[in-house]
Design a protein around this nucleic acid. Structure first.
Ligand SMILES: [Mn+2]
Ligand SMILES: [Mn+2]
Ligand SMILES: [Mn+2]
Ligand SMILES: [Mn+2]
Lengths: 220, 220
DNA sequence: AAAATAATTTAGACAAATCTAAATTAAGTT
DNA sequence: AACTTAATTTAGATTTGTCTAAATTATTTT
């Protein structure tokens, strides 16, 4: 239930990276945390053992549902403190992050919920990023459907609106799942089918019917 | 310049204990910090190496001037956060200590000084204890002289008003120095001499002239 | 002044988080 | 398909802070 400062920093960073990339790699995380790949591997084993992480050697990693909840708690604390620092203590918006980086690890629920109330339940931090509420709900990166995504913009599959066995079978065959990074390369007017890239390389075609049911959250 | 949470907890606890007792022992500190005597000895070596502590094996320890400065910084943070929690977040006075115990270790000077200003430079925490200012000055446990101390009240020698070689020689002979715990047992009207206890046991007599020059800070 | 007891320190071990260097696996290229 | 390079993992150390058990030193009692 309680995590070390180090574990929290890993969890939070994975959360942010996977938002952009679907899956996170060892080197990427090592770069972000200014640590060594070997240290990342060690920590990944630990987080997997705590069921916060999906991880198979050489396959990259993603947070589990539990892991994401933990991450949202940390992000909530971080952003509430940033709001407090800017709004009440008159720090400038570029100074708050560094200080919040320390305050976020004080994980007393009552403290954070009272701070939230004191600040008037702010919705966004000083950088405009949304603040998760006490239940971990965060203003969604508004989901859109694949056909609405601009061309050549890498984005993330975050859900499927039709849950039938048939569509899941098709998605499985095309190796598309929640967390897959996709990019629309071409739109064919004749039948509204799309040529898309999945993962890092694979180029495939999907029908309008399928595309309509793929929910996307995109943050570049 | 920056200390670990563990080091800070030791430093702060030594500061409080030596205020009451002059010198601090291994078992005492272990008891207070809920750790083992062997761990205390290990940490004492480290703090001595960092010149925060006077320590000779088996002789107990006291903070150096530098050590006390560090302690006052931690106490300042602790008490400012306690004030914030009670005053702004509406915690009750008995809840604040536990939370402040965590917040005190976020040691960003600008944060604390801005918090202090935001709170209106409070002088006392919710328990009535004085808050050190940004320079580490704390409302003194007003020094009095030995003859003014009530009978049978253990208190601490905190200074000497006359710094001549003669008085220092006499004090040395009587084994009284800064940090010695003393207690006045009897007052003789005839010559205003005092019978006092020094340390835990020794009973000695001192003249009015000497007593007048011994400064006392007493906190039981 | 011994002997007994209490306080303190040392020796050796362990968990957490990190590192370097070497080994392994995956990916990209002829 | 084999070779080369890049990414990742493993092996083995290191630092910090802690512990238990044993040895040492100080204090108190006889
Ligand atoms: Mn930030
Ligand atoms: Mn952090
Ligand atoms: Mn307190
Ligand atoms: Mn503390």
């Amino acid at each position: 239930m309680n995590y070390s400062v180090s574990e929290e920093n890993y969890i939070k960073t994975i959360f942010h990276l996977q938002k952009k990339e679907g899956t996170v790699t060892t080197n990427e995380l090592a770069g972000e945390l200014k640590t060594r790949p070997a240290s990342v591997t060690d920590m990944m084993k630990k987080l997997k053992a705590k069921k916060l992480l999906h991880y198979q050697p050489y396959q990259g990693f993603r947070l589990t549902t539990d892991g994401s909840k933990v991450a949202l708690g940390i992000i909530r604390r971080h952003r509430l403190w940033e709001y407090f620092l800017a709004e009440k203590l008159k720090f400038t918006w570029d100074e708050v992050h560094e200080v919040a980086e320390e305050l976020e690890h004080v994980s007393n629920k009552k403290l954070i919920d009272k701070l939230d109330a004191y600040l008037g339940f702010p919705k966004k931090d000083p950088h405009g990023d949304p603040i998760p509420d006490a239940q971990g709900k965060i203003e969604s990166g508004k989901k859109i459907r694949l056909p609405e995504v601009p061309l050549n913009t890498s984005c993330l599959v975050s859900g499927v609106s039709n849950q039938s066995g048939e569509i899941l079978d098709l998605l499985k065959h095309k190796k598309i799942s929640i967390g897959t990074v996709v990019e629309v390369r071409k739109r064919f007017e004749f039948d509204q089918s799309l040529e898309i890239r999945t993962g890092k390389q694979t180029i495939i075609n999907i029908s309008r019917e399928l595309a309509e049911n793929i929910l996307i959250s995109y943050e570049a």
